[in-house]
Write a protein that binds this DNA or RNA. Structure first.
Length: 626
DNA sequence: CAGTGAGCGAGCTTCCGCTTGACTT
């Protein structure tokens, strides 16, 4: 009598093995075990001649998918088959999400078990949770499986129909896809904004004031009750003040003239405002937020972050690292709260345990948030880790602990000071109670952003006070173009639009760099001319597909398929073979797209045109001498 | 007659998402 349990990850298998009686054998499938053929060599001889073989989907036979066992999974499948021979029962314990349900179904298709089968799901890897799950097994949900197959087939149809069009019209070996083309388009749109950006410049005054031996900064904000222009008053496309804004734009001469006019005149505090502010801690890490913070704070790329997190996971330091959930189990909340209690004292605990819920589009929540493993958290020092492993664990530990800490209470102070007809403003921040800021301060994509946990001290002032002016300077400023995407900000954007999944964020960036759509220079993703050409073609002829809304609409339909409200076949038919379907559109548009035009990128302010050739981009100049 | 080279045709590139090692640069 023995039971074979199959999970997705070998680390998970190892852990669960300890919670089950010795008659249970636990093995890992290592993710998917079958897929559409990834290259020509995976297409079986029997169907090689068929015209749909390359696509891997028989569109004319109700979109029947051609599933094969990839080369690197043959060994796993053989091992699972052997393990099943000795079993009297099979339990499929893959993750409880769309892909996990599908993996279980594929396992059944391949293993063809003669013994009874059960589907088991659990969200926490504790002895109690596993034992409990064993007594609450269910059947495979075929509708969820169909939703996954629909997703898989649709992605194949998009990629393998649009990519060949790009080979014909732009260059060999290019690619398009539901996810990557949206990512590339985001980079291209930002670059267009940057090219359209016109710099504006303005001047203002900066004063260093002093009262009772405490000095503080003040910045010019009004002259004669008219607001002085700052960066936010400029139109990005003209470099001029936005039409209709009643602001005073100072140039260098005017700023210096004002300076000499008010120099040595008395300063008077004209207004004081104090405002209480509370700040809440950020939720625990998901894959996306971990990648963002590791990029901002540790300067790690998404791939590297995942590699380190994987190794921490395998050694039992953290929970699973590919997740879209911010949920913490009861034991995790208890562990985090006892860390707070021990290290900072009970006044630093949030009065009630904080429960976070996931808001991002399309989240499937098969796992917990990323947190220190176990029912008590080892402090970073207790782990014995060092180097980058230590720093990443430290980040995860702090974020998790902080998520159960009290709000930070601060007082923001604004002081207005008048000298002649010029008004100056000073901003102060007093931290009345640091709360979670003691443990963790979230990073920012904006290098100029003020640090959340730093006080800005102003002296005690009251209206009518006359601070001394120790220094007064005219300062020139220039408006800045919108920043290029970093790995962190691209992942953040994709996640918020529901595009891509935790297991793919890092590889999306890899794909667009490998295909020559972007270069990663000094943490900035810079789109290439090829990216411009491809994006322009797709936007012109297939605008729906490169819209970020495409994935959310698809997800909605997949959810309906999973609940039985919608049928997968009519959806695919409409999407692909219908009158406005993709196959139909590609066929129709193909003759209309001029390859010479598609290969040419026209940029403002450059007399030459950029063309995409066999070996990359080259310049084509209008005047022959060029 | 043998060696050369133009021209033709066949086969291939490509998607997203799940999971690790095995592999090369």
């Amino acid at each position: 009598m023995s039971t074979l349990v199959i999970v997705e990850s070998p680390t998970k298998a190892r852990t669960i093995r300890n919670f089950l009686p010795s008659t249970y054998r636990v093995e890992a499938s290592m993710g998917h075990v079958r897929d559409l053929p990834s290259s020509a060599e995976e297409i079986p001889e029997a169907v090689k001649g068929e015209k749909w073989a390359q696509l891997g989907v028989n569109v004319e036979a109700d979109f029947e998918p051609l599933y094969v066992i990839p080369k690197d999974k043959k060994k796993i499948v053989k091992e699972l088959k052997d393990a099943l021979k000795d079993a009297t029962e099979l339990i499929l314990a893959t993750d409880e999400d769309r892909e996990g349900e599908s993996i279980s179904w594929h396992l059944l298709q391949i293993l063809k078990p003669k013994v009874p089968i059960k589907r088991m799901v659990f969200h926490e890897i504790t002895r109690e949770a596993i034992r409990d799950a064993l007594t609450h097994c269910r059947d495979i949900d075929n509708r969820v499986v169909q939703a996954q197959e629909t997703r898989r087939i649709l992605d194949r149809l998009v990629g393998y129909t649009l990519s060949p069009l790009l080979w014909k019209k732009i260059a060999w070996g290019l690619s398009a896809g539901r996810v990557q083309s949206v990512a590339v388009r985001l980079l291209v749109r930002r670059e267009r904004e940057r090219r359209a950006f016109r710099q504006g410049s303005y001047w203002d005054l900066k004063a260093l004031l002093e009262k009772g031996k405490i000095s503080f900064d003040a910045k010019l904000v009004t002259v004669g009750n008219v607001k002085v222009a700052n960066g936010s008053d400029f139109d990005e496309n003209t470099g001029q003040i936005i039409a209709g804004r009643l602001v005073l734009l100072l140039n260098e001469d005017q700023a210096r003239a004002l300076l000499s006019r008010i120099q040595n005149k008395p300063w008077t505090v004209s207004n004081l405002e104090e405002r209480p502010v509370t700040r809440k801690p950020s939720p625990p890490f998901t894959t996306s937020t971990l990648q963002q913070e590791a990029n901002r704070k540790l300067r790690l790329g998404a791939r590297e972050t995942m590699r380190i997190a994987q190794s921490l996971y395998e050694r039992g330091f953290i929970t699973y690292m590919r997740t879209d959930s911010v949920h913490l189990s009861e034991q995790a909340i208890t562990a985090a709260r006892s860390c707070v209690q021990e290290l900072y004292g009970s006044e630093y605990l949030s009065p009630q345990p904080r429960k976070y819920t996931t808001k991002s589009k399309g989240a499937q929540e098969a796992h917990e948030a990323i947190r220190p493993a176990g029912s008590t958290f080892r402090t970073p020092q207790q782990t014995g880790l060092d180097g980058i492993d230590f720093r990443l664990y430290d980040l995860i530990w702090k974020r998790t602990v902080a998520s159960q800490m009290a709000d930070s209470r601060q007082t923001h102070v604004t002081v207005l000071t008048q000298v002649e007809d010029a008004g100056f403003r000073s901003s102060g921040k007093r931290i009345d109670f640091p709360g979670f800021l003691r443990a963790y301060v979230e990073g920012s994509d904006d290098p100029n952003a003020a640090l959340e946990d730093q006080e800005v001290i102003l002296p005690a002032l009251k209206v009518g006070d006359k601070p001394n002016c120790k220094d007064l300077q005219a300062v020139g400023h220039e408006t800045q173009p919108p920043a290029r995407y970093t790995e962190a900000s691209l992942v953040k954007m994709l996640e918020s639009e529901g595009v891509g999944r935790p297991s793919t964020y890092a590889s999306i960036i890899g794909t667009i760099v490998d295909r020559g759509y972007a270069k990663l220079i000094a943490n900035a993703l810079i789109p290439t001319f090829t990216a411009f050409a491809v994006t322009t073609l797709l936007e012109t002829h297939f605008p729906d597909l490169v819209d970020t809304g495409f994935t959310s609409r698809m997800e909605q339909t997949l959810d309906e398929i999973a609940t039985g409200e919608a049928k997968w076949l009519p959806y695919l038919q409409k999407f692909y073979t219908g009158e406005m379907g993709l196959a139909t559109q590609v066929k129709e548009q193909e003759s209309q797209i001029d390859a010479k035009v598609a290969r040419t990128v026209i940029l403002e302010n450059i007399t030459a045109k950029v063309c995409i050739g066999k070996y990359g981009a080259y310049l084509e100049s209008e005047n022959e001498e060029g």
